[in-house]
Design a protein around this nucleic acid. Sequence first.
DNA 1: CACCCGCAACTGGTTGAACCAGTTCGAGGT
DNA 2: ACCTCGAACTGGTTCAACCAGTTGCGGGTG
Lengths: 248, 248
Amino acid sequence: MAEKTRADEQVANTLRDAILAGEFPAGTDLPGERELSTRLGVSRLTLRAAVARLEGEGLLRPVHGSGTRVLDYRQTGGVELIAHLVALGATTGDAVPLLAGLLELRRLLAIEAIGLAAERSTDDERVGLRALVLRQSRLVDDPPAYVSADLALARALAAASHNTALVLVANTLTRMLERQPGVAAAFMADTAGTLSFYGRVLDLIEQGDGNAARRFARVLIERLDRQIIDRLGGAPGYGATRAEREAS
Amino acid sequence: MAEKTRADEQVANTLRDAILAGEFPAGTDLPGERELSTRLGVSRLTLRAAVARLEGEGLLRPVHGSGTRVLDYRQTGGVELIAHLVALGATTGDAVPLLAGLLELRRLLAIEAIGLAAERSTDDERVGLRALVLRQSRLVDDPPAYVSADLALARALAAASHNTALVLVANTLTRMLERQPGVAAAFMADTAGTLSFYGRVLDLIEQGDGNAARRFARVLIERLDRQIIDRLGGAPGYGATRAEREAS
DNA sequence: CACCCGCAACTGGTTGAACCAGTTCGAGGT
DNA sequence: ACCTCGAACTGGTTCAACCAGTTGCGGGTG
């Protein structure tokens, strides 16, 4: 199979998986760059580029003169890792709680973006959102394009919130999902329900009542998310209260 | 002042600022690596390491054989950029809306983390949160340490939510703020109010009623955030440079 | 004239070897 | 027993060369 990705990216993927899988335990040092690079069959410079990537993701911290520390992703890992964790968990069976958490986060952000969009969006932005939903509705038979359209809509919604921080979070998350189509696909609920939900959300945004939009969006996204979790064979204990957890 | 940071990091900072300031407009190509590296006084390899960093942040996209595209951070930039945008905006006067958006995001995440912590946290985690608040309360006279303690508390709270996605977002945001102490400082509200708020939040978390905790947290964080915005917006040097603010 | 084919001459991607600069730790002197 | 200092690690940086895509121009060909 022909590889089109760059060498340092492939090496970064390999190393990331190894680290997340615990092959290089947190707190220890990575093997030396010279050794590791030959072991992976690339030059030291390529290895270094991969290490730099993972440093940016909060997985590694090179220490001049000493070694390259492996960090605990639970303490320092960035959001981009979630998709990799899910993909990795898919092979070991504990992807569902991770996906549930990711849905929880997305729901949170989506609700607020919707509320803010109702309060702040411009006419042009609302027209644009309509167009995006329409376009997406025509792609139900082309799953990859459908997913991509869904992510584009999420970005547009964030933009309509006029909150730059929200926009950038949306960028990070959608970019992550675009690179992990499998994870993104697990996200999609039934298309009919989703699209009709989008339509009604746009109505509420157009009415300009942020809190009404938030309330409505919360109820419906929770319903859609529940569908997704159930379809995945929901983990017992997902969304459970403390009392319920302690009882089990 | 002695520079301890690595060369590629400094170059990345320089380039990032230039891009965010519009010196390299989105949609255009960066100057060739060979030219740019000599212009910046580093080797081409170091320049490439910097470019790789910025690629990870969604600011650049190198195209083999063609050039290095400058992207529009509003469409592809990651969350990490917010602090840089704020710092940059502090010199041009439009930092306040950015900070307001960042506060909005933090509030959103904090409220949910608090609610989930009430529903899911373990005894150990709650004890740990108490200890962190106590420690923070003893650092009110050491602003940098206080800020750092505040960020540590935020991470612990996210961990207590038992939502890995939330944890990783918190990691990304706190890491960003740790690297931009000035931006983090702008975040801090009056210490007495904040600490008493933390105490009451912990009480609610211990009572295990997530929704009550969410409601209460929303009201109080909104109040604290408004204080912060008023302080920034009402001050004589609204959005002024640090020098101007200190002069008043 | 219009087309298109292919060959420079760009661009970024990768490499090896060499050297700089920190950190660690133990051999050897006191 | 204690310092000290230097060798032998570690990562950081550079150079010069070459590989590999893209682009566009110029010369052929219909």
